[in-house]
Design a protein around this nucleic acid. Sequence first.
DNA 1: GCCAACGTTGGC
DNA 2: GCCAACGTTGGC
Length: 260
Amino acid sequence: MAVNYWLMKAEPDSRIIKGMDVKFSVDDFECLKTTAWEGVRNHEAKNLMKSMKVGDQVLFYHSNCKDPGIAGFAEVCKEAYPDYTAWDTSHPYYDPKTDKDNPRWYMVDLAFKSRAKHFVPLSLLRHIAALPSNTPPSSIEYLGEDGVQSIKTMALVTRGRLSVQKVEQNTWDALQLLAERGGWEDLDLKGKEKGGKRGTAKNAKAGAGSKKGNAANESGEEEVSEEQGEKSAAGRGRKRKTADEDEATPRRSTRTRAKK
DNA sequence: GCCAACGTTGGC
DNA sequence: GCCAACGTTGGC
């Protein structure tokens, strides 16, 4: 079986939850070398993690910050196992509905591989996704039409809120090229394509209501199986940090939902 | 099982 | 801080 590719989001800026800072930037990751991806509290994201294999490649993404984008590369070094932070009442990601006999949440361990030589900002990806054709701008023509096309369909662009996403190989290739070669300084990424998503829908309400299909977790939720994935998603779970230390150290991840 | 209100994510 | 997107809850 071939290697699979993923994108996982973490928050590089400090944010305190239950007294713990959930920040986890590419700098933190580079220092730790490996990290347990705890804190994901969304079934679709969890199911994707359960399908990861050692050796799978991961794009490390900076989320919920001033300049969101792809900051580095990592690789899965330990397959899914129960996320113990869900059982720790003092932890930001504590989930009273799970128990040790029947774990609801899982995490994988990631090993840091490298920083992106050129940070790939979300604004660039949105800019590319909004191009009228598949012809890349001249400064990044190395992407080719296939590269442009592959970015237009990636989950990060089409449904931003999921914190763990699958990335197709051709998209991975395009992103890796961008990170390696850069060259888009001449493009105006600033407000440009922004409107894309947001501006369009005015029917916000309708949107929300109508959406439904989500099925959040497929139906069963946790127990459901792993493979499901792609359907619902929500967005939230983010990731986090920590290395290893177990509970002693706080740091980690991201937002979880406090739902109740 | 539908759907409106609500809460959260997360870009800007 | 704003607000669009969208999952989730809960009334019916």
